[in-house]
Write a protein that binds this DNA or RNA. Structure first.
Lengths: 188, 188
DNA sequence: TAATCCATGTAATAGGTTACATGATTCC
DNA sequence: GGAATCATGTAACCTATTACATGGATTA
């Protein structure tokens, strides 16, 4: 399951330009898959070569020409076959948790900043997801929003719960390091 | 923040072989960063060239030689500098949610299978994380476990809540498609 | 006796990110 | 007047995955 397949999926919902597909990645897909123009346009080119999509050139008066892509019958078949054999994996890559794992190496103000930034970001995501719940969509799509909402909410609660304790601990550790060592404590 | 930095982080906790570091990735890091031997060994090689780590060769009688890596003073500095300037991002890549997003293209049995597999996998993760909570560790590390626990738990609850509804909807849609179309409904 | 643990690595490839390059239009 | 929207793409680079290759020791 790569960006090519997600583009095919996007086109299974209706015809679109590369630009449109990017918007889909930024909105509907954003909480579970990321892509930029640098991957989307080459992906569409390869799919075209493979006969899985085709495009019509739409001339516009006051805009550059558009390439409006559609999925072909072959493309739809390949996409459904792919869905049928893709295992339902999930992989998180969290720089935030790396920072927290090594929190004992951070200064207390930096730690406070990290927690606050993540909290703010999570709250922005929450707002975006709550906005999405208002749109009409099939049950499966709706589920992805609920799922992301639940995870984001849980994250926010967890950060708020531990924030004070983590910062208190950080200050204590800094104080211990600042205090001159008594003899025999070097190899503690 | 790449695998090189995570290796440096691992060595900031104590000397280790490439093999040991892999175990750390599979246990303590597993819920927020992934890596295999194919990335760890080259990373350690580059870090050695850059003077951020060094190794001692330990001969063993009944085993192949070990390379025991240690972080250098320079390496520790670089690592802390990196921690200080890394933004606390978080990125999910979920094939599971892609499948759910396109659930309307799946057969009901396949959909049921996907939900069950994800549930089982989440429950395995939950068990692993609960096991980790029993170990003694600094507050920051403990937090990463609580955070992952909260997210995984929320995911499980969410799947259980929607499982029945999703499957019911899927059956309805299949029935609609199976039913012969009445005239004039082709372009609905 | 089969699987798992210990222990190291390479090579080919896939895959994606980032920055660059262009340019009119419309909204604030 | 400046930012955002619409619209397309390329090229260099970096990173990581996968499969391969080896092999003794221990545990079930």
């Amino acid at each position: 399951m790569d960006i090519k397949m997600l583009c095919l999926g996007a086109l299974s919902l209706g015809d679109a330009t590369g630009y449109d597909i990017k918007k889909l990645f930024d909105e509907a897909f954003s909480h579970f898959f990321a892509a930029g123009y640098g991957s989307i346009y080459p992906a569409l080119e390869k799919l075209t070569e493979e006969g899985k999509v085709a495009y019509d050139r739409h001339q516009q008066e006051k805009r550059p020409d558009k390439k409006v892509f559609s999925i072909t019958a072959a493309g739809r078949e390949v996409f459904i076959a792919e869905l049928t054999q893709t295992p339902p994996r999930e992989k998180l890559r969290s720089e935030f948790l790396v920072l927290m794992f090594f929190a004992h190496l951070l200064s207390p103000p930096r730690l406070a900043e990290i927690l606050q930034e993540r909290l703010d970001e999570s709250q922005r995501e929450l707002a975006m997801l709550e906005d999405l719940t208002k749109r009409e969509m099939p049950a499966g799509m709706k589920f992805t929003v609920h799922y992301a909402l639940a995870a984001t909410h849980a994250a926010i609660v967890c950060i708020k719960e531990h924030q004070q304790d983590l910062l208190r601990d950080a200050r204590v550790i800094v104080n211990q390091c600042a205090r001159p060592k008594s003899p025999g404590e070097q190899h503690a």
